[in-house]
């Protein structure tokens, strides 16, 4: 399993959201809270946006597929790490699951407008690194990293 590799000496900030099965509001709420926190940290709009998307998609995957899970957003000086852990069916073929449009979401989920098979692909698109580890019948751990890069010079506030 993936070990968190962030040294504890640096200043860091962590958000922690429990996500339950079928709690469709959880994804939007955790994405919204993440966004607010990252904006308060003064991160670049693009980093904020991408982090919110990953949080939303990762949470939605737990809501749709798993029985329960946890989502952590860890911010250190140079990167945002989003870590989602769940207990659930797991992903038998990760490579296949990463393909756009591949989905195992049931009909009623698709009816609600979710489960289009874009989640993992979208997360990969929004992150600098994405690692997914899964054990069928046990659960999945997903870790996405976004590098903060050079901070924009603070804009003058009018």
């Amino acid at each position: 399993m993936i070990e968190p590799c962030v040294s504890s000496a640096e200043p860091r900030f962590q958000l922690d959201y429990p996500i339950n099965e079928s709690d469709f509001l959880a994804a939007g709420e955790s994405a919204s809270k993440t966004k607010k926190a990252l904006q308060q940290l003064g991160l670049k709009p693009e980093v904020v946006k991408n982090s919110a998307i990953i949080v939303y998609e990762a949470a939605m995957n737990i809501v749709i597929h798993a029985t329960s899970g946890r989502l952590k957003v860890i911010i250190v000086r140079d990167e945002v790490v989003i870590r989602a852990e769940d207990t659930g069916p797991g992903i038998p073929d990760i490579e296949l699951a990463m393909q756009e449009g591949y989905s195992t979401a049931p009909h009623e989920i698709r009816e609600m407008g979710f489960g289009a098979g874009m989640g993992l692909a979208n997360m990969k698109h929004c992150s600098d690194e994405l690692i997914v580890e899964s054990e069928p019948g046990v659960g999945t751990i997903l870790e996405a990293r976004i590098h903060l890069g050079q901070k924009e010079s603070p804009r003058e506030i009018r």
Binding site: E10, Q40, G42, R77
Partner: peptide
């Protein structure tokens, strides 16, 4: 132009603290 007035500090490390 954006008006990023939400930020706690110009320095990310300080904002984190």
């Amino acid at each position: 132009e954006p008006r990023p007035i939400m930020a706690l500090d110009d320095d990310v490390s300080k904002a984190l603290v």
